[in-house]
């Protein structure tokens, strides 16, 4: 379609449409005001100036390997060999046993290779809960053993626990994160 401003002068060739086509030729001031109102500035739709030049550039792919280092990665990387051989690592990380222990339950590591033991502190309260997640297999057996193990650490020898079979977690009342991790590491998880 021809831009409106070019219709100000009559076209040199008749339009080649099959249907009848009325060409409006309003007065120049009306046309300009129409354009300004509905189309904005008239030079907005001008094509780019072919004589305009941009600053010269030199293209090279030699240094692009440095860019790759700056882009980062998306997925969790593999554990370095050094950390698998010399453990606990300086930051205290211990890998899982290479062969899974033959127990009725199993606790998988998180995607960052950590134990799925978390401390929940209830909002606006001092209530603390230790949660062991990602429990596969016989969750009740694990709960029994865990409670038995934690009784020695409990102030009055009482350990309150909660099991969620569907969501595969166990919660213990109190902050026993380190003790639970010690228990699981000893088992080889």
């Amino acid at each position: 379609m021809l831009p409106l401003r070019l219709l100000r002068s009559a076209p040199s060739h008749p339009p080649t449409h099959s249907h009848s086509h009325r060409i409006f030729q309003p007065s120049s001031s009306l046309l300009l005001s129409f354009q300004r109102t509905y189309l904005g500035r008239t030079d907005k739709f001008k094509p780019p100036d072919p004589n305009q030049t941009y600053t010269p550039v030199v293209e090279s792919a030699d240094e692009f390997r440095f860019v790759d280092r700056l882009l980062g990665r998306d997925v969790v990387p593999k554990i370095p060999e050094k950390s698998l051989k010399e453990y606990p690592t300086p930051s205290g990380w211990i890998p899982p046993a290479p062969v899974p222990p033959q127990l009725p339950y199993f606790i998988a590591r998180t995607r960052f290779h950590n134990l799925p033991v978390y401390l929940h502190v209830v909002e606006h309260s001092t209530r603390k809960l230790t949660q062991v997640a990602k429990v596969q297999g016989d969750i009740w057996m694990l709960e029994k053993e865990l409670v038995h193990f934690l009784r020695q650490h409990a102030f009055d020898g009482l350990v309150a626990s909660q099991v969620s079979e569907v969501n595969r977690w166990i919660r213990i009342k109190g902050n026993y994160v380190e003790q639970v991790k010690e228990f699981l590491l000893a088992k080889g998880f």
Binding site: T55, V57, V58, S60, A61
Partner: peptide, 26 residues
């Protein structure tokens, strides 16, 4: 800003090249 990359360079991720300004003033 970045190691091994100079200011003023434009990185073309798609074609894996770097555009460096050739104009002396820039």
């Amino acid at each position: 800003c970045f190691y091994d990359l100079e200011p003023g360079w434009v990185v073309n991720l798609k074609d894996r090249t770097i555009l460096k300004p050739a104009d002396e003033v820039i």
